[in-house]
């Protein structure tokens, strides 16, 4: 009995020793010489492997940063602090960049945009987009099947079943751009987060003429140009019947939000507007009364989400 136990222990010990030697020799022989700084940079990165930088993953980012220099390479997830550390480790400099966030440029919720066909195929936006304009008459709008949600590695964008539109959780969003690439309708845009997270943007992509756009969706930008005229900073441009606010020029005066007859311009994270402003908006157009209330609702919605 004893001999059996001793024999077993001895065998295993010798086996272990032999294998260790083999492993050591193999490790020595096939050793790959690598710049140790690659490991340093990789350890500084968030390790999400999201591909937001345009590289295959964090390791690829590190390799590229060490071999070719930082250049325009940015880690959107880590943001400025991480980039600063990496730049220090490599002895390079890097410019600070404003933090960004994904913004959904469509307000065609289920109640504002009627379904005109029944889509009966695979429920991904890409499939619908390859087939036709979508199950509403707006062929620019959100298709609502959540390709963005599936692409997001940070659980930051979710389709709200009530509105049928995606909503971005600003706390979680790293601006990696995965959803921007996934969206076949180019609804999602990365915009600067803005001071205190405040942003004003046109939540519509409809390039149809006003009447057509309006017929398809109550919240569509009809290209009326009122916002362009109102803007004191020339931040708004109108192209193909669609207004666009340049976030580098916008000074957040919010005049356009009030002026927009369909409520296509959204403001987020602003404190509640003084009640005096509201009646001024009402006479703009009789139909405008309802849509103007929309941004206000949104304002309430987002802080609530954050607390969660």
């Amino acid at each position: 009995m004893n001999t059996t136990i001793i024999f077993t222990i001895a065998t295993l010990a010798i086996l272990g020793l032999l294998l260790a030697i083999v492993l050591y020799i193999v490790a020595q022989k096939f050793k790959v010489e690598e710049d140790p700084r690659i490991d340093t940079v990789e350890s500084l990165l968030p390790g999400a492997n999201c591909g937001g930088c345009g590289k295959a993953g964090c390791r690829a980012f590190a390799e590229s940063a060490v071999k070719e220099g930082l250049g325009s390479l940015r880690c959107p997830v880590g943001g400025n602090p991480v980039m600063q550390k990496i730049a220090e480790a490599l002895g390079q400099t890097v410019e600070a960049k404003d933090p960004q966030v994904a913004v959904v440029r469509c307000s065609g919720s289920c109640d504002k945009r009627k379904k005109t066909t029944i889509y009966d195929g695979l429920a991904t936006c890409a499939t619908i987009a390859s087939l036709y304009g979508g199950d509403t008459d707006c062929k620019f709008g959100c298709l609502g099947r959540g390709d963005c949600e599936a692409a997001c590695k940070f659980d930051a964008i979710k389709i709200n079943p009530k509105t049928g539109l995606p909503e971005v959780d600003e706390e979680k969003c790293t601006a990696c751009g995965a959803c921007v690439k996934a969206c076949p309708k180019q609804i999602i845009e990365l915009r600067n987060k803005g001071p205190k997270g405040r942003r004003v943007y046109v939540a519509c992509r409809n390039q149809d003429k006003g009447a057509v756009a309006r017929k398809a969706c109550l919240a569509a930008c009809i290209g009326c140009g009122k916002c362009v005229k109102t803007c004191p900073f020339e931040a708004i441009t109108l192209e193909n019947n669609l207004a666009y606010i340049d976030y580098t020029k916008c000074r957040m005066c919010r005049k356009c939000v009030v002026e927009c007859p369909t409520g296509a311009i959204h403001e987020v994270n602003f404190p509640p507007r003084p009640a005096v402003v509201k009646p001024a908006a009402a006479p703009a157009a009789p139909a405008a009364a309802k849509p103007v209330a929309e941004p206000q609702e949104k304002k309430v919605e987002i802080p609530v989400e954050k607390k969660n």
């Binding site: 195929g121 695979l122 991904t124 890409a126 499939t127 390859s130």
Partner: peptide, 12 residues
């Protein structure tokens, strides 16, 4: 299962 729907997308 809508096999072809997925396969058509993947193929493209």
């Amino acid at each position: 299962i809508p096999l072809l729907d997925t396969i058509r997308q993947s193929k493209a």
